[in-house]
């Protein structure tokens, strides 16, 4: 896993390069929700996208899938899927990629299933919508999918309200897998579920990944879930990538002050306090408003390490030299190594 951040290096399934997305707001201002976001997803790999609410995780997925709402525009950057630039495709060609090559489980979608349609029928409709097969074949496919995600066949004809949260999320996964994609985006798939059900769903994702060789991009704000699932982590702050690298390095040698604080503020069962009643670390302040971003590093107003230069110059991405050549990049002035060639 050397520096795979070069387009068309042949390895990556998906590469986002310098992705910049803006939203036009009702008050005529423009909010830059993403700026210069780059990352790679290798086949069969799990990439985690973490950060506080509003940092642009969902927007990243929507930009890559080209499903932005009408007030959103990708203003710069590229997205390569198997070397093809997705942003250059017509909407029709893009549609051919969606669901067949990459599918998405939308944030909160499990609470938005149609309440008056049977689960099985809803999955079948999703399949038929993509014109892959006839009705009978689609019916068989539904059975396959339900078995894959562990929903007993007898529950195919039940309605969403008869399903618990975990079962509904399984149904959503089945729906996303309908067209056998190579890449699955899962936006906060376990946020509303409690730990045991979360563990079941994560386990299911792992199993499916092993069985189908699927690559997964997992969006979550739960650092524990990312640590459990992901090979590579993208830590986002205010629409930019703060730290990007292999999960082992990011968790054990975090370089960006934001990542450091985020990890310290995570109440971790396995790192119980040495003395009782020790306070957790916190990050004072709030994330920046996107239509009024601070100059320089976006984290500088909240950063405990910030220097004069931080409020003036936007830090570039820097490779953390680990010797082993394992991927680890940070955008922070504290690291002054050579900038990565673009």
């Amino acid at each position: 896993m050397t520096d795979a951040l070069r387009p068309g290096s042949g390895q990556a399934l998906l590469s986002a390069r310098h992705l910049t997305t803006e939203f036009h707001l009702a008050d005529k201002t423009v909010a830059r929700a993403l700026e210069d976001v780059s990352f790679d997803v290798l086949p069969g790999q799990t990439v985690g996208l973490v950060g506080e609410s509003g940092c642009g995780k969902t927007t990243t997925l929507m930009s890559v899938m080209r499903l932005l709402p009408s007030n959103g525009r990708i203003t710069a950057g590229n997205v390569y899927f198997n070397g093809n630039d997705l942003l250059a495709l017509s909407e029709r060609d893009m549609r051919a990629h969606r669901w067949k090559d990459m599918a998405i489980i939308f944030q909160g979608a499990m609470n938005a299933l149609n309440p008056v349609l049977r689960i099985g029928d809803q999955i079948r409709e999703a399949i038929l919508l993509h014109d892959l097969m006839d009705r009978a074949a689609a019916d068989r496919r539904v059975d396959e999918l339900l078995e894959l995600v562990g929903i007993p066949r007898g529950r195919r004809d039940q309605y969403p309200h008869q399903y618990s949260g975990g079962m509904r999320q399984r149904a959503m996964i089945a729906m996303a897998l309908a067209c056998s994609p190579d890449l699955l985006f899962a936006d906060e798939p376990t946020t509303a579920l409690d730990v045991m059900i979360q563990a079941q769903v994560l386990e299911l994702l792992k199993e499916i990944q092993k069985k189908l060789g699927l690559a997964i991009v997992l969006v979550t704000h739960d650092l524990g879930v990312v640590a459990e699932m992901c090979d590579t982590v993208v830590v986002m702050y205010g629409g930019k990538v703060a730290e990007y690298g292999s999960a082992e390095l990011v968790y054990n040698q975090p370089q960006h002050p934001y990542t450091q604080r985020l990890l310290e503020s995570f109440p971790d069962l396995n790192r119980p306090p040495d003395s009782a009643n020790r306070d957790l670390a916190t990050i004072p302040g709030t994330p920046p408003r996107l239509n009024a971003l601070p100059p320089g590093c976006r984290f500088s107003p909240r950063c405990h390490m910030s220097m004069d230069v931080c409020a003036q110059v936007t830090p570039g991405k820097v490779n953390v030299s680990t010797g082993s050549g394992v991927l680890h990049q940070v955008a922070c002035h504290l690291l002054n190594e050579q900038e990565i060639n673009k």
Binding site: Q198, Q200, A227, N252, L269
Partner: peptide, 20 residues
């Protein structure tokens, strides 16, 4: 056992109860 640790090095065997 199912509480995820915030460290990929500490992944361990989970005892996942089936069903709800």
């Amino acid at each position: 056992s199912v509480v995820p640790a915030a460290n990929p090095k500490q992944r361990r065997k989970m005892v996942i109860l089936s069903g709800e």
